[in-house]
Structure formats: C-alpha cells, structure tokens
C-alpha cells in the first residue's frame, strides 16, 4: 500500500470512529496526531479495520465483543489512541471530567450504559463472526 493510500485510510477511519463515539467531526489537530500515532505505533495497515470502516460496522459493538475475546486487538488499540488524543483536548474536558455533583443522575446514566453495553456485546459477538474477526 502506498503512503497516500495509507493516509487516506487513516483519515477515513479517524473520521468514522470519532463521529461514532463523539457524535462530531474529528478536529483537525486530533486527526493529524491520530495519523502520526498510528504510523508510530501500528505501522502495518490492517485490512480488517479498513473493511469495518467501509461496511460502516457498529464500531462500539465490534470493539466490545473483540475486547472481551482478545483485549489487545488492533481495533481496541486504535480506539485507545483516539481516546488518549480526545481526552487531552480541552474541548472534550467535560466529557471525561465531572464538574458538578450528579449523584442521582449518574446512577441512572451508568445503569443505562450497563443495559446498552449488554446489547452492544451481543450484537458484537454476531458481528465478529460476520466480519471474520475471530
């Protein structure tokens, strides 16, 4: 794969992942760092990731099921890089840090995520087979 192709793929996956996770277009500085970090940490392009992006797979479902099978899989690593970069961007501060006491509502939010995550996990198990990831 040429470097131009590789860059285009990394841009596409960063845009797709960021949109799915943060419901916003990926900011340019994060995009640039994501590309550089991937080049350093995971220099070999992975067709499986490319396929997931092209097929617009439910990335949260696939990632969760894959993580439970194999915690250090390539998708989890890529999302981890994105989380490191997103977290250290001031615009995302309030996503990761709670600045007001929200005792009651946080229980509801966490309970909701528990149920949602169970659903994602079951869906992910099915998708792992469908995309031949295990």
């Amino acid at each position: 794969m040429t470097e131009t192709n590789d860059t285009a793929n990394l841009i596409q996956e960063a845009e797709y992942f960021y949109q799915k996770i943060f419901a916003a277009p990926v900011p340019r500085p994060i995009l640039e760092k994501y590309i550089a970090a991937n080049r350093k940490k995971m220099p070999r392009p992975d067709e499986r990731i490319r396929n997931l992006v092209l097929k617009k797979a439910d990335i949260e479902a696939v990632e969760m099921a894959w993580r439970f099978k194999s915690p250090r899989n390539v998708l989890t690593k890529k999302i981890h890089i994105l989380i490191y970069l997103a977290e250290t961007t001031p615009e995302n501060f309030s996503l990761f840090f709670n600045t007001k006491n929200k005792r009651f509502s946080s229980f509801i939010v966490l309970a909701g995520h528990f149920v949602r995550s169970m659903g994602k996990f079951l869906k992910g198990k099915f998708l792992l087979k469908r995309y031949n990831l295990v």
């Binding site: 949260e60 479902a61 990632e63 939010v109 966490l110 995520h113």
Partner: peptide, 12 residues
C-alpha cells in the same frame, strides 16, 4: 462497558 459507557465511567 462499550466505549460510550466507558466514557461515562471515566466521568462518574
């Protein structure tokens, strides 16, 4: 949890 659930865990 799934990714968004883990973000909520980080926060709460």
């Amino acid at each position: 949890f799934a990714i968004k659930g883990n973000i909520a865990c980080s926060r709460y």
